[in-house]
Design a protein around this nucleic acid. Sequence first.
DNA 1: TTGTAGGCGTTATCAG
DNA 2: CTGATAACGCCTACAA
Lengths: 345, 345
Amino acid sequence: MDDGSQVPSSAPTLHDVAREAGVSIATASRALNGSARNVRSENASRVRAAAAKLNYEPHLSAQAIAKGSTRTVALVVRDVADPYFSSIAAGVTQAAQAARLIVTMAVADASPERELEIVKTLRGQRPRVIIVAGSRVDGTGTRDALIDELEEYRTAGGRVVMISQRDLPFSTVTIDNHGGAGRLARALLDAGYRRFAVFHAPEAIRTSRDRHDGFRAGLLGVPEPLAIETGFTRAGGYEAARRLVERGFEDVEAVFAVNDVMAIGAMTAFRDAGVIPGEDIGVAGFDDIGSAVDVVPALTSVAVPLREAGLSAMRLALSDVDGPADVRMPADVVLRESTPPRPSA
Amino acid sequence: MDDGSQVPSSAPTLHDVAREAGVSIATASRALNGSARNVRSENASRVRAAAAKLNYEPHLSAQAIAKGSTRTVALVVRDVADPYFSSIAAGVTQAAQAARLIVTMAVADASPERELEIVKTLRGQRPRVIIVAGSRVDGTGTRDALIDELEEYRTAGGRVVMISQRDLPFSTVTIDNHGGAGRLARALLDAGYRRFAVFHAPEAIRTSRDRHDGFRAGLLGVPEPLAIETGFTRAGGYEAARRLVERGFEDVEAVFAVNDVMAIGAMTAFRDAGVIPGEDIGVAGFDDIGSAVDVVPALTSVAVPLREAGLSAMRLALSDVDGPADVRMPADVVLRESTPPRPSA
DNA sequence: TTGTAGGCGTTATCAG
DNA sequence: CTGATAACGCCTACAA
């Protein structure tokens, strides 16, 4: 009646709960979260009842400043829509929710500058953890700035985990790119392939370089593969395949695209050009994303447990190791119809 | 020398900046963000210099409680790894970053209870906006609880936007599921198909039901399609196709799976059973996810601008309309090789 | 233009 | 076991 508040009354506070329960604000606080043992059980239930009645939810920001720490983990990815990153994100959020942590996500697009800027503003959140996923371009000046930024964050008490960015002074979850690609090379040799092309991204993209290098390292006693540089995306793969077809591909029996989306784009390009993948030319990728099995022919790839990588990253962040720790995710070859055994020439 | 702090000195505060610049805390605050006009430019630059030197970032939680509002957008999705949701998430984060907002993400898995719980704890963040994406099961008791929760949040000053959940008292971005499916039906009729099967999810999943209904509504003068209920996932599509093959499919010329991942799973199942999609049987999906064109035969689908939906959701949230507003995303048929024109019988 | 002081919603300390 | 009261880091009248 006399309340008359039609304005957006903001959410109830601890104060309201305490008043409703007829206790002090301190008691209410203790009953709700603190070492609850020290509050008379009758009062405790009064408080809980009041909280329930008012549908009270504690103000996380207020808690954060009072306690001096948040329950937030910040995740930086290059592109959420990319299955590679969204799988990692799924793993991270799963582990975070299990630990009752909130994950905030930022997208760095393709630019290292943006990534730096993001990490800067992320620090404002005072997250417990910052996880940076993504194959960052290295060699740029912003790289050092990024490291400084993260190191400062860490000395301020934060935890940093990198996914797939080795050689940085932080805990890292790495994918065995080099080894996996090497094993793929040998598997293809075993299947009878001898002459290869590699569709790779610019050297600055570490993941691409590692896979490319690993593949070449696995190749023994066969000619150096033809290297075609292109974008790290589906479109890149498509375009590289088209270039290969235009150039003529009599001297290549199979192509290795450094990731699956590129490989799938390449397969489509081949088909569009009348070249049948798996028949006229072998195709292999890396990552073993879900659609690898739905494509025709099913794509030979190297399986990387992306979701697991996200889980591991959180685990690494939460475990209280002192120095930077490393976890290496396996990468196992999965042969499928896109690279059928080839009668040795 | 006398400082002796080796412990994780926490991040610099405004206090530190002020001291470094030799001004009061208030002046520092004003120089950094407030109506900066009222501070002598010399002091202003001293403060900025000090902030830069200390690498100061304002504590967002502190700002939040001081100002009484955050710069956070909370996004609830069913599964980040699903391309449907990750595309929406990409749109949301893009728009949010443009508006200098932080997005926090929570994953509701498959359970409505979990969704309710999430929205509850989300309120603790006091986000400016809550966006709920995903085709929620309706008819459950938790549905009403969810609505209550969100309504309370809104009266407390928050903004709510639903994606793809019509008939709720909130602003909504809907996909034209019914219309799109109807147009697909007519396009298939035009292509000469007459007898259909529909792979759909349980009735409680609204999106599935709408697409199913829309498809039937578009069918004129042909027999009622065979309905096969299954899961809303790739595995569901696979399994439904296998069931169809086992049952015998002489009486069906094409199947409509209510989403692309189901359709793609179905195509793989057909192939595994020796049935060639696009030749022995037509297949169509819905969503037009990226891999629809990479699959063979390329999948006929209904294109839904998912990323745009995410952008629209943010726009809706930020625009200051009074009542719930609605935005409807178009859904356009894309015919591809999985449903080649069929010589009318 | 600047500084002082009070307040935001919690937690934590410290007497009662 | 409970209740004042002082933080936490920042913003913003209000006063100087």
